[in-house]
Design a protein around this nucleic acid. Structure first.
Length: 259
DNA sequence: ATGACAATCAGAGATTGA
């Protein structure tokens, strides 16, 4: 089972680039972030015509997540538990019914800038809720994964210019510590299981020629539960997508699971 | 220190992102 995560930065703007990548990469499941669309405006037919089930959790203008799946989905849940007053559409969960059922959690973690301030407080509180959710799912001892745009640069090696991010919400010690606490619960970061070393990124800013200078950061991640990590065959970043016509500023990351 | 670039909504320019 091939599961991918992709922050598409607007479904309307990516109506060509996203189907192009799906046709090429053929993921069974795609977790999308920043659809920037309400559910009713999502171009479902683009994906249903390709054999995908479409489940959206949208919002006007900003945020918004979705799941595309060629396999049946069960028990779809929209929104991250823990704060009923949170109206931002950043989280969706479903169980993918492959040979081995795998629960997938698609997430768009808040950016958190500027720091300090209410946006950073929201980011850290959101991460606490994500940790709480991971604890609940871990207790089930079933295979699950949490994938998406974490807006966290885990270590200096995950940025081309780490010094430029030192004071940024994506790399501040508190952000990295919260990310590590998720790992310390027993989650495995899939990419680092497969690939060591610097120079691997999933985001390049549109500005200042970041792509041409390979000035990137790695902020899109797959975290696997112990039972899911046992199924891991491969994890890759589809870097070339960033160089194609009218791209998102993020590229897809995917895992191949024996499921 | 700021803007660079892109997207959205709206129908100009503010807001958001990372």
């Amino acid at each position: 089972m091939k599961v991918a995560t992709f922050n598409i930065n607007g479904i309307k703007a990516r109506a060509e680039a996203l189907p192009r990548w799906l046709d090429e990469a053929q993921p069974d499941v795609a977790l999308l972030q920043e659809i920037k669309s309400v559910d009713a405006s999502f171009p479902r037919a683009l994906f249903e015509d390709r054999g995908y089930i479409v489940e959206t959790h949208g919002q006007k203008s900003f945020n918004g997540v979705a799941i595309l799946s060629k396999l049946p989905l069960e028990d779809i849940r929209r929104g991250l538990p823990g704060d009923d007053s949170d109206e931002q559409a950043r989280y969706v969960e479903a169980t993918v019914m492959g040979d081995v059922p795998v629960r997938v959690c698609g997430l768009y973690l808040p950016n958190g800038n500027p720091t300090p301030g209410p946006k950073y407080d929201y980011k850290l509180a959101w991460m606490e809720r994500l940790i709480d959710r991971a604890r609940v799912l871990l207790a089930s001892e079933e295979p699950f994964l949490m994938a998406g745009d974490y807006n966290v640069i885990p270590q200096d090696e995950d940025a081309a210019r780490p010094e430029a991010w030192r004071e940024d919400a994506l790399a501040l010690p508190q952000s990295r510590a919260a990310f590590r606490r998720l790992l310390y619960l027993g989650m495995t970061e899939a990419f680092r299981t497969c690939t060591a070393g610097a120079g691997h990124y999933s985001f390049w800013d549109y500005q200042a020629g970041a792509w041409n200078r390979d000035d990137g950061i790695r902020i899109d991640h797959f975290l696997l539960s112990p039972q899911c990590a046992d199924l891991l065959r491969d994890c890759q970043i589809d870097k070339h997508v960033r160089g194609e016509t009218r791209p998102s500023d993020h590229v897809p990351v995917w895992v191949d699971l024996a499921a």
